[in-house]
Design a binder for these strands. Structure first.
Length: 275
DNA sequence: ACTATTTCCTGGATGC
DNA sequence: TGCATCCAGGAAATAG
């Protein structure tokens, strides 16, 4: 399930592989579910445009598109916004590569390659936007300073785990990294966000940033069917201390890791180390 | 203004 | 082996 580090890895791969290339034609499948804009609008917006830059906003992939040959302009003409949901992939490949099931869009590039959006479970989303109009809300976890981070949780009665997952507060943190960050600072996922001390929130801010940075360095976590733009796997899953380790010993105290459901999400923690 | 719950969707794992 | 059932999860929608 792509969260911030996985999306960042994919974005870097796309930036190096397709930035500067031009979209010569677009094919869109019949499924409506993944489309946030109409198929006609997506085709019309993408066709003929050059991909000036690929960047990330939270868990969204944003491709800046320009019409002119010269890419010196600062403001793109349009943006192509992609959310991978749980199982979404952005594949860059040669046209001879067989189109797999659940391919919802394929963009043929001037270089001859194809950029394909594939998503089995269809929680992913495709949209086009006018530059400046797309704002997923929330703050970037790697850019927010500790004071602003603390303010996000003031007065919130919801469990800290749920608050960390709320994209309108913090954008990009998902289930894996929320659990991992909480484990690193010894906070139980069920603690009310408003009940966490200033010092602990400062520590949590540091842990969220550390865990995301470390994961980006390792190319993200490959669990489920996540792979990067080249199909390569990440390796941060080898660093997980609690996520997916129910019943296994805590790496610090050997107490079995517990799994509980909070807000419909499985949450993992050490009952001894996390209070 | 919040918060909690439900819904979408399909592949993989599990159980009989 | 095969079939049914459960489960995973991001975020939008709904209900309270």
């Amino acid at each position: 399930m792509p969260e911030l580090p996985e999306v960042e890895t994919i974005v870097r791969g796309l930036q190096s592989r397709v930035a500067g290339d031009r979209i010569s034609s677009v094919w869109i499948g019949s499924r409506k579910q993944p489309l946030k804009s109409s198929a006609a609008k997506i085709v019309a917006t993408l066709t003929g445009k050059k991909i000036a830059r690929v960047h990330r906003m939270g868990k969204h992939i944003v491709l800046d598109l320009v019409t002119s040959a010269a890419s010196s302009k600062k403001i793109p003409d349009a943006q192509w916004v992609v959310h991978l949901g749980m199982t979404g992939r952005m594949l860059v490949c040669e046209p001879e590569i067989e189109t797999v099931k659940h391919t919802h869009l394929s963009a043929t590039l001037a270089s001859g390659r194809e950029l394909r959006f594939i998503d089995a479970r269809m929680f992913g989303k495709l949209a086009v936007a006018v530059p400046g109009n797309f704002d997923p809300g929330g703050v970037e976890p790697l850019e927010v300073d500790p004071a602003v981070f603390q303010e996000l949780f003031r007065g919130r009665k919801t469990p800290i785990k749920s608050a960390l997952l709320n994209q309108k507060l913090l954008r990009g943190v998902g289930n894996i990294y929320a659990d991992e960050a909480l484990a690193r600072v010894g906070i139980r996922p069920r603690r009310k966000a408003s009940a966490i001390s200033r010092e602990d929130l400062t520590k949590l801010h540091g842990a969220v940033q550390a865990v995301l940075r470390e994961a980006i360095k390792l190319g993200g976590s490959s669990v489920s069917d996540y792979v990067g733009a080249d199909g390569e796997e990440g390796f941060f899953q080898l660093q997980h201390r609690v996520y997916g380790r129910e019943g296994e010993p805590c790496l610090v105290c050997a107490t079995p890791i517990q799994r509980v459901v909070i807000g419909g999400r499985s949450s993992h923690f050490c009952p001894k180390c996390q209070k």
